[in-house]
Simulated assay, not measured.
Amino acid sequence: MNWKAIFFDLDGTLVQTSPEIADATNDTLRYFGWPEVSQAQVDGWIGQGTRELLILALAHVKQKDVEQVRKGAHLKEALPIFDRYYQQRCGTRSVLYPHVREVLKTLRERGCKLAVVTNKEGRYTDTVLKAHDLTDQFDLVVSGDTFSTKKPDPVGVLHGLSLWGVDKSEALFVGDSSIDAATGRNAGLQVWLLPYGYNMGQPVEACQPDRVIADFSELL
């Protein structure tokens, strides 16, 4: 159908960002003299924002419970260091997935409203979008710190629907993970998932989306 609005996840859906996230994570760990982590581990931790990813990385290397890390001194020390490194790394090793730019352009030409809804913090979201010249392609950008809650809470999606006067039956959520599937469902939208992103090591079919699309161009 001709969707009036489409909401997109960012990491693993529009842009492959995990290499530079892993770089910034290991930059931080090296700074403190802690063991590094693998790319595969970082891929499995992506989805809930970089703060949560750093918590999981610290829990792994320090061999501590996640809640211990969340409340402990190591996280407080590591957060500003990670912030510095990730700001430097944003856009350096990430790449757009095939057909993303062309599809977004075509959808806009058709009059479809487009939004990014990500759990990545706003300062990083803006940097990644600018690095890949995507900022002007979206009518709305909702980051993990835009509202008091983040995905799978549908607040960002509902805000967009209200802003544009679009009914949920005329909108679609496109992502790559169980978090995205839950977000779309919580907003009452159809959910299409891409299989090449970051779903914590699980196949996207397990999320039971309305459709799995192997290629971004299938949106057209």
Rank of each mutant, 00 (worst) to 15 (best):
L161N: 04
Q41S: 15
G49R: 08
L193M: 12
L96T: 15
V103S: 04
N199I: 08
T183W: 00
F32H: 10
A22T: 13
L58C: 04
F147M: 07
L79S: 00
W192A: 05
V15A: 14
L79K: 12
P35D: 08
A131F: 01
L56Y: 14
T183C: 15
V212K: 06
K62M: 13
G111L: 14
F173C: 11
D23K: 06
D145T: 07
G122D: 09
H159I: 03
P152C: 05
V142A: 14
Y198M: 05
F8M: 10
T13M: 13
K4N: 09
Q202F: 02
K64Y: 01
D83A: 04
F138M: 07
A131L: 01
P203Y: 00
G201R: 05
W45A: 00
R108P: 08
F32I: 13
L96G: 15
L163E: 07
P209K: 12
I6S: 03
E102S: 10
T183R: 06
K64V: 11
I46A: 10
S38R: 02
P152F: 00
Y198E: 04
L193Q: 06
Y31A: 05
P203G: 13
S178L: 11
V103W: 11
L172D: 02
E102G: 09
G144E: 04
E218G: 11
D215R: 00
E77Y: 14
A78V: 08
L75Q: 08
C90E: 02
M1E: 08
D126R: 13
Q39V: 10
